[in-house]
Write a protein that binds this DNA or RNA. Sequence first.
DNA 1: CTGAAAGCGCTTACAG
DNA 2: CTGAAAGCGCTTACAG
Lengths: 344, 344
Amino acid sequence: MNTRRVTLNDIARGCGVSRATVSLVLRGSPLPAADTRAKVQTELKKQGYVYNRAAANLRQRRSSSVALVVNDLSNPFFAEFAAGADEALGAAGYVTLLGSTSESPERQQTVLTSLMEHDPAGIILSPAEGSDGEALQQILGTHVPVLVFNREPTRVQWTASHWDYLALANRRGAELATRHLLERGHRRIAFFGGHADSSSCRERRRGYADALAVAGLAIEPGPMIETAPTRLDAAAHSAALFAHAPAPTAAVCYNDAVALGLMLGLATRGLRAGRDFAVTGFDDIPEAAVSTPPLTTLATDPRARGRQAATRILERVRHPGTDAVRGSVPVRLIIRASSEVTIA
Amino acid sequence: MNTRRVTLNDIARGCGVSRATVSLVLRGSPLPAADTRAKVQTELKKQGYVYNRAAANLRQRRSSSVALVVNDLSNPFFAEFAAGADEALGAAGYVTLLGSTSESPERQQTVLTSLMEHDPAGIILSPAEGSDGEALQQILGTHVPVLVFNREPTRVQWTASHWDYLALANRRGAELATRHLLERGHRRIAFFGGHADSSSCRERRRGYADALAVAGLAIEPGPMIETAPTRLDAAAHSAALFAHAPAPTAAVCYNDAVALGLMLGLATRGLRAGRDFAVTGFDDIPEAAVSTPPLTTLATDPRARGRQAATRILERVRHPGTDAVRGSVPVRLIIRASSEVTIA
DNA sequence: CTGAAAGCGCTTACAG
DNA sequence: CTGAAAGCGCTTACAG
């Protein structure tokens, strides 16, 4: 358990060559003669040598890690995102330094400070709600490429900054969902759930309003009901949809969790989504396909987003000169039974 | 974007002291005089110094990271586990090196090899299904403490090995669920779902058989139906429960996903869980509390398990001499409506 | 109380 | 084709 670790020196001594030669063999250089190479290889096996990448990185002034900081790993959406990012980083020979912040901007500062000391080649950050751009800037400095995912911190000078931003097409997505309901004949459509002060909720509400506006002046935005973005809170607030007559016949929900909660709330009133009331979600979480009824929603494929974020950050690591980009991600409307009900 | 990184040397030169003094200030030593200390602190701020922990670790022959390798980050159970582990590691000043294997033993070998080169102080491993203990041993060597979570790799010499093992109380949990159904008067109880060749499924089946045996010789194990541990596959196989008369009146399911799938399958036959048929799960995933009906299940609190795993591995890092332990984790039966139906 | 020197495990010109 | 030497950014006895 406690023997000293095997180093290049041990190998060199073990087979009577210099450290430099062993290093060349390790790195697959064609310089060493074939038999030297073989001799060294055998010795490496024999002594159970493990490469010390930290030492190599120090000498070469490179880094083989990327920090991945997420606001909430217990949310399947971000877990998938993390899995996708880790997958792509691993495939490129990078190791993922994980940090989770539990939506606390303070913890996020601590976590990032600690990760910075490990000299990541880049940083993928899905910020905690309420993150402050200046505070982040302070810690992250200007040496390391940063990609911000999903949410905008406050007070970011995007033009002056070198941060990439990868956003979901929130506005466009909500617009698609709303248009879909309009096409089914609905005229009283609510926007249901989410925190109105989050950037994603504001954008989705805007897309909802866009679609209604395009559909003609006669149609006004319906009620906008705020809830925590969770199933339970959505279920608790669903009565609010029916507070005033005439009640809406459909709701564009902030996300899938909220939509599933609303379907629960509808059931309590004896209404069934897809038969008596139309519901759409956002995210296409795994449950969406198997709920009763299955949920019409917008798919953004978080795992693919994770891969995309990793690919992008590695590009910037390799080409430090290039400009930062603000990217938006495709959304796809997936039509399922929850929005089947049509209005003549 | 591309200025050289600030080092101790820059700080030392910047305020006219030696590198050693700066290092002492950084590490909070009481040796330097108060005014020297102040001078150095100011210079650190001014130049935006970032500590290079890798260099320090190299010199001190320590490590400030722990590798966390999980089989499936998109499963909420393991995502929670990872979040808990990362939380505890972070609090102890360690950084988490993440690796995910997507249940592929081959990928697991690659991932672990790469992580080993980053010199982790310890390894928390939730093995991919079908992991081979000898192959793992090969890569992990004997220098680094390892904690295996949740599943046993094949061919592990636990007595000879220095690996910790943290298991769920699979047997005990399934026994609790089965006993609960027996107490409600059920006499024909099936075990439903899971792969019979996974260690956790075998253990849960054993606990199920235990409870039936205790209940008296008259009660024999009912059908054992194999499925993938997913909602969809479980739904697809639920008809098998009713293939032979007399059909069971209750099922102990391998896990919550399977139980939710079975409830879907029951609905297809016009049966409702909790009214016409009793169902129990395992894991207490978030959906269990809000499904229709809510699911009776066994809670193991994966986030707390993650914290526990981290705490344990750090203990072994600090006390390398101590023996490995095989720990089992408490389970708690949570009774909800899905098992409400009683048999007179 | 502060500085010069050696060394962690590696890589990389540069001689030979 | 191979080896001796310098150096990445730090820490730590050891002098002074």
